[in-house]
Amino acid sequence: MLDWVAGVGRSTLNIFTVLGRSGLTMYQALVAVPDWRVQFPLLVRQLYFVGVLSVIIIVVSALFIGMVLGLQGYTILVDYGSEQAVGQMVALTLTRELAPVVAALLFAGRAGSALTAEIGLMKATEQLASMEMIGVDPLRRIIAPRFWAGFISLPVLVAIFNVVGIWGGSLVSVDWLGVDSGSFWANMQNSVDFADDVINGMIKAVVFGAVVTWIAVFQGYDLVPTSEGISKATTRTVVYSSLAVLGLDFVLTALMFGDF
């Protein structure tokens, strides 16, 4: 019993230590006046690796998810004779929940794991140490641009996810199942509010982008520099960021749409 208590205490302490260390790392990396002449090209480069290379998986997933929503929504709503509400259903589900959450999960798998592995490999091959010896802080040079790139990319990807998903929904319900196009869009426009639904969804995207890239770069920076360490840290990035996204999604949803 005492062992159990001690174990819980120890792991709680461990969690706080890791949180503190990661917070401190991010503080050192991000809180500084950026030298834009150096930082901007690095940021653009990382936006390519983190953002542009994730576009394909985001677009394809969004299309299929939108189409499934259209199909499922139609088969349920047609029983009540209100199949024109399918536009409203697809748009609300996507903007409020599915686009930020699914995009963040895909992003964690595609970009987050790649970031962890890349930084981990740099650590294992002593690139970070040698950069430090040359007199350049790897936190500023390696970590900061990658973090900002993730932070900027995810909201952009979520906006694209929304549009492609809604288009996929209209493709199935309007073009294939014959829902009236006018009432599909009118219904959607009546019920979707830009500030309440779209912007709140984008706020979620910003939070998820920050959390996922934070986890990814810290796991890469903090890992044990061996091949086993890298593979473990990559797995941890995907697991932790998925859990963080789902947990935070509940909290944010409760704050935004709950009636407290």
């Binding site: 002593e126 140490a129 040698s130 010896m133 040359i134 007199g135």
Partner: peptide, 13 residues
């Protein structure tokens, strides 16, 4: 450190 050079075991390019 700008007055020091270090050659790492793995090269670390």
């Amino acid at each position: 450190r700008s007055r020091m050079g270090m050659l790492f075991q793995s090269g670390a390019l």
